[in-house]
Design a protein around this nucleic acid. Structure first.
Lengths: 195, 195
DNA sequence: CGCCGAGTTGAACTGAATCAAGAAACGTGG
DNA sequence: CCACGTTTCTTGATTCAGTTCAACTCGGCG
């Protein structure tokens, strides 16, 4: 088995226990792929057909609004799942772009393959139930987060996600926080003076 | 079987097919309860121990921020599940309040009972995977929603959720939209003039 | 070397919040 | 069924956080 499988099997093992046979079946459905910086995994207008699991690197999912602004919905780092499940579920064109921030390695699972896996490995239902529950919980926090002032958001961000602040450009952080590049920059300035 | 079970069984049936025996097992774990308007299902500071399924009526989940403002995270109408899964999962005090907006009927499932149900009725894993996936998709839309201007949010809200606009007070709608009562009111005024 | 994208800083502007105060609507008890 | 207090809604005037626009700096890379 390729060394890459380790990361995903380890992650799944934190939630459910698969037999060797099940692991084999699962891995057979995984497609390994590398993406370079700025390369798209998904572009808006296309129908999303795959789930993505990040082995290494960093992805960004964002929408471009009518006035041309980018709204970052989420970042995905090592061991995160990302996709446009709405597009996949309803076979509708996606409103999102998913782009590699760094050169990244991912596993892809095709929609129908995943459906098959659910019947072959029922434990995966449990695994993804937990994954989606956790994802739901994070997003709920983000709803509250967005109600706060720019400064509060910035402080909370550095506290909670400081560890990936260096890996991202200011513009991308700003679009995640829902503020402009300029405002984020001014907030950073303030911080320095206070310290 | 009580007539109330119909609603939840029907809802589950839209996602997975249970045997009669499984239905019985499930229903045995459900606790039926009525709540009056303004009554709390969960108060912040308490640890959430139950999932709630709304049979009839309407609930609201909100956080009270330090400055005393209420931020509505979500409403729950007929056939919706609601709870603080973060509090439940980690046995931590909840930051949310869940309150009945109207007199409401709900089914409650206790945390450990639900865990047992997952092993007894594996199909429920599938059911809740789908429920959480849908919940996740809605929240992702809400992230983008919150980036828009007050007016855009109001228009989109009336378009998408107009059907429950009458059942909610303006303050509650405002706190869901992330704007003040006053601003919402002014937006309604504008609409009338334009028509 | 020169270009281009990313970051910085300033000044003017604006959408929405805040503060304030009056008008409906609601429900509860006499 | 009306009178009362309570809550919700409405409207206006003022303020402010954050955007916008614009210019300028810095570092990397062909």
């Amino acid at each position: 088995m390729s060394v890459h499988y380790d990361s995903i099997l380890k992650h799944i093992d934190q939630h459910v226990t698969l037999s060797d046979q099940e692991k084999k079946t699962l891995c057979a459905a995984l497609i390994y792929k590398k993406f370079r910086r700025k390369q798209y995994l998904l572009q808006d207008g296309n129908i999303c057909t795959h789930d993505y699991f990040v082995i290494s690197g960093c992805l960004r999912q964002y929408e471009v609004s009518l006035n041309g602004k980018e709204n970052t919905v989420q970042f995905a780092f090592e061991n995160w799942w990302i996709s446009d499940w709405n597009s996949m579920l309803h076979s509708q064109p996606s409103v999102y772009n998913i782009e590699a921030m760094e050169s990244s390695e991912v596993f892809m699972i095709e929609k129908n393959e995943l459906e098959k896996l659910y019947t072959e490995i029922p434990k995966l239902e449990s695994y993804f139930r937990k994954i989606f529950l956790n994802a739901f919980i994070s997003l709920q926090k983000r709803i509250l987060f967005q109600q706060k002032t720019a400064e509060e958001r910035y402080l909370e961000f550095t506290k909670s996600y400081g560890w990936f602040e260096q890996r991202l450009s200011q513009q991308h952080i700003a679009s995640f926080l829902g503020i402009t590049r300029e405002t984020l920059n001014r907030l950073k300035g303030q911080q320095h003076k206070e310290n």
